[in-house]
């Protein structure tokens, strides 16, 4: 044993069975998703597991589904609005809490900004429901779709904030100092040096904020009023009624949108290592 180790022949990193578990884990994570995807092309009338041949008919049916389109558009509008707001606020907060002289309240600020990550989603959902219904009762103000945008903005902020903060932490201060030496004022330094360097972090944070908003089900379901149906809510309403592969097609579309944004965010995060 020891002689093996000293000659370097033994692979010290190997642990028996770990490779098998890792591959099994990956298969288990992807199998259900792949089944949904494959059966969205099934030329069958029901979502049973028998394969009746390849067909795009359920995507064609989906394209004609007005409810699907309306909810997809609402989801995009809400996600874009929440992403823009949470990214701007997250960037500002990251700039205020990273690479700065520690200020009183900074720790509390970071805690409150990341708090949506530790509060169970169902608790956030019912507290927002109670909050908006209280405002509606006390002041007679009903926000409509704006309440979904505001709620999404609040829970998207930590997802935008953290990648931007991480990027800032890894950034070289010498470039900004050089700009200051060249008599750039604070704003010019930020606009022409800090911001371009920070951009991959901001884009990565924005992509995550978009996914989190676009995918949200629990909070939206509890606070949405009648007619305010986002895509996940639309799919939810159809689980029990639709028994055709159109449901698979809907799920596939939703999944592909998230995957596109995940890969985008991943690539942008990896950039910082270059």
């Amino acid at each position: 044993m020891a002689s093996f180790a000293s000659t370097g022949k033994i692979d010290i990193k190997r642990q028996t069975g770990f490779g098998f578990i890792a591959v099994a884990c990956l298969v288990a994570l992807y199998l259900p998703i792949l089944v949904v995807l494959v059966f969205s092309f099934n030329n069958a009338m029901s979502i049973g597991a028998s394969w009746q041949g390849f067909s795009l008919r359920w995507y064609v049916t989906l394209m004609k589904n007005q409810g699907f389109f309306d909810s997809a558009i609402l989801s995009i509008v809400v996600a874009v609005a929440a992403t823009v707001m949470s990214t701007i606020l997250g960037t500002m907060a990251a700039l205020a809490t990273t690479r700065v002289k520690r200020w009183r309240g900074q720790g509390a600020t970071m805690l409150i900004i990341t708090s949506p990550l530790i509060v169970p989603e169902i608790v956030s959902a019912v507290s927002l429901l109670a909050f908006f219904s209280f405002i509606a009762q006390a002041f007679g103000i009903s926000f409509g779709i704006l309440k979904i945008v505001l709620a999404h903005t609040s829970f998207c902020i930590p997802f935008a904030y953290l990648p931007i903060k991480a990027r800032l932490e890894g950034m070289d201060v010498t470039l900004e100092n050089a700009a200051a030496d060249l008599y750039a004022d604070r704003w010019k330094t930020f606009r022409y040096v800090t911001l371009p360097l920070l951009l991959p972090g901001i884009s990565s944070g924005a992509a995550l904020a978009f996914i989190v908003s676009f995918d949200d089900f629990t909070i939206t379901q509890l606070i949405a009023g009648p007619g305010e149906t986002t895509l996940p809510l639309f799919i939810w309403s159809r689980i029990r009624n639709i028994v055709t592969p159109e449901l698979n097609a809907m799920c596939t579309v939703l999944l592909l949108v998230s995957i596109a944004f995940i890969i985008l965010s991943f690539v942008l995060t990896k950039k910082k290592q270059d």
Partner: peptide, 28 residues
């Protein structure tokens, strides 16, 4: 001056989190 600036910069995010996180929780 810097500290004041940083507080101001973080303020909008803090206000949103208080309005839509802390206050709703207090209502519950």
């Amino acid at each position: 001056e810097d500290t004041r600036r940083h507080r101001l910069l973080a303020l909008p995010a803090i206000l949103i989190m208080i309005a839509l996180g802390l206050i709703p929780l207090m209502i519950v």
